[in-house]
């Protein structure tokens, strides 16, 4: 394909991304260095890095930062391990496979705001799990500022695991039967087969899943926002902290909210640059 044809085909998409992604990003960086309030957008004052120094001294920022890091650090590995295990189980059954798959997919496809509300109802007073907790420990489970992060993490694992399950399951379908048979012939046990045949085959899928879910877990918003409505700031992850700082009617500090976003952008890039470099080299090598 010539460069010219490429341009004709790719321009609408590239135009949309440039206008609606590059431009907003530049605006975000610019606004992060101004003092600008929600109630009066027209008055802007250039204040350099003041927003940033203020954020770094804000205990709310560090609390949101800790919650986000904890969320990523637990949800990402947990869902990969769980997803791999469940995909393995699915791969070994033939009966009712479609049914299992459909039922396992549910948490992934349902609207996150809705599923958070459902989980909240389960854990709140009068809910099924709250009551089960009471049966076991003697006190009903109640979501409060101290334990809300664990409920958010549980919801995170519950809702993202199906993504790993179907991705790994789809990958296992392409594993040639002969390789398993060859491993059997060599007398490989279950774990040896996983370690030397299945996992190497799924390597690129595992990296793909890690890449996608690190991105998604890092910017977790919906569940943190919904729990924030009932227990307040202790449920806030970084995205919600940024949103709340900028658009909450009482706070409405758009400049500071943008500065938080910029810090988040820097944070994710520090993590992703090795990944991006590797993908770039692969793309160049593929040419």
């Amino acid at each position: 394909m010539t460069r010219r044809t490429f341009g004709w085909f790719a321009w609408p998409s590239v135009a949309v991304m440039s206008v609606l992604m590059v431009f907003p990003l530049v605006t975000t960086v610019f606004l992060s260095m101004t003092r600008i309030f929600l109630r009066d957008l027209s008055s802007r004052e250039w204040i350099g890095f003041d927003n940033y120094t203020e954020i770094l001294q804000d205990p709310d920022f560090w609390s949101a930062f800790r919650l986000t890091m904890l969320f990523v650090a637990i949800v990402v590995p947990a869902h990969v391990v769980l997803g791999f295990g469940l995909a393995n189980l699915l791969d070994r059954v033939t009966r009712a496979r479609g049914f299992y798959l459909a039922a396992l997919l549910l948490p992934f496809i349902v609207t996150p705001v809705v599923s958070t509300l459902l989980v909240r109802d389960l854990f709140d007073r009068g809910g099924l799990l709250s009551w089960l907790w009471e049966v076991v420990t003697g006190d009903p489970f109640v979501i409060h500022a101290g334990n809300v992060k664990w409920v958010i993490i549980l919801h995170g694992i519950w809702s993202i695991t199906p993504f790993a399950v179907i991705t790994f399951f789809a990958g296992m379908q392409t594993l040639p039967e002969e390789r398993i048979e060859a491993a059997d012939m060599d007398g490989a046990g279950f774990w040896a087969k996983q370690r030397f045949v299945v996992i190497p085959h799924l390597r690129s899928l595992i990296i793909f899943v890690l890449l996608i879910t690190i991105m998604d877990a890092y910017r977790v918003f919906d569940s943190s926002f919904v729990f924030g409505q009932s227990v307040g700031k202790s449920a806030h992850a970084l995205s919600v902290y940024s949103f709340n700082t900028a658009l909450n009617a009482q706070i409405g500090r758009i400049g500071k909210g943008n500065a938080i976003s910029v810090l988040m952008v820097i944070g994710i890039f520090v993590v992703l640059i090795p990944f991006l470099r590797k993908s770039y080299q692969e793309q160049i090598a593929d040419r």
Binding site: F23, T28, Y218, R219, F221, S261, L276
Partner: peptide
């Protein structure tokens, strides 16, 4: 791919 990684708030506030 890099854009896919960015937090949504970085876009939604300018919008």
């Amino acid at each position: 791919l890099a854009f896919r990684a960015l937090p949504r708030t970085a876009f939604v506030l300018p919008y």
